[in-house]
Structures are given as structure tokens and as C-alpha cells.
């Protein structure tokens, strides 16, 4: 396992974080350092162990199908950059 510049590029694209070409090898070095340290987990025998999910042994609670929310368009939009006519806006998207 080694994270090369191409992998850094792919990860940064997936994460939508702009990384310049000049930064790629710094990133690769850092990530390799951390992932190399994490490799020690391979020593642990986890055969037959069910992976944990979530942080609790509680049971899921559900909500009733009732309308209790909405109708707060002003509050929903109040922190947005350049909202218009009740909409959020983004650079034009071609589908």
C-alpha cells in the first residue's frame, strides 16, 4: 500500500477539496505516514467478529408520519449565499 500522487488527486476530487499539483506529494507523504501507522490493525485477528456499527446498543426510535415542520423558507435561506426568489442558487449546471 502506498498512496501516490494520482491517488491523492482522486481522493481530493472525491472530497471536493482543491489541491494544486505542487501540493500532491506533500499530501501523499502525509497520508502515507498516517496510513502506515494505521496498518498495525492488520495484526489483529478479527475472524468471525461482527463489525460494530454506530456507537450504541440502543434500539432505533422512529417518528410518526405527521407533518410537524416546513413553512420556514426564510429561516432555511437566511444563511445562504445569494438566494433568489425563494431558491438557493449555484453556478449553472448542465444535466
Amino acid at each position: 500500500m502506498s498512496i501516490d500522487n494520482a491517488t491523492v488527486r482522486r481522493i481530493a476530487t472525491l472530497a471536493r477539496i482543491e489541491v494544486t499539483d505542487a501540493e500532491l506529494s506533500t499530501w501523499a507523504g502525509q497520508l502515507n505516514g498516517i496510513m502506515g501507522w494505521i496498518e498495525q490493525l492488520k495484526e489483529v485477528n478479527t475472524d468471525g467478529v461482527a463489525p460494530m456499527s454506530g456507537g450504541t446498543d440502543l434500539k432505533l426510535t422512529l417518528r410518526a408520519d405527521q407533518v410537524t415542520d416546513g413553512g420556514i423558507v426564510d429561516q432555511v435561506l437566511m444563511n445562504a449565499t445569494e438566494p433568489q426568489d425563494g431558491y438557493f442558487t449555484v453556478p449553472k449546471v448542465v444535466e
Binding site: A12, T13, R16, E18, V76, N79, A80, T81, K92, V93
Partner: peptide, 20 residues
């Protein structure tokens, strides 16, 4: 998009990447 910092970009993905 909905709150916080936005750095303009040449398209949606560019805006995301620059903002973040």
C-alpha cells in the same frame, strides 16, 4: 450552497473545491 463560506468557481464542482 446553503450556509457558510462560498468561493466562486467556474462551475459547480469548481465552486465546491475552492470553497472547501
Amino acid at each position: 450552497v446553503r450556509f457558510g463560506l462560498r468561493v466562486p468557481g467556474k462551475n459547480l464542482d469548481d465552486m465546491y473545491a475552492k470553497t472547501r
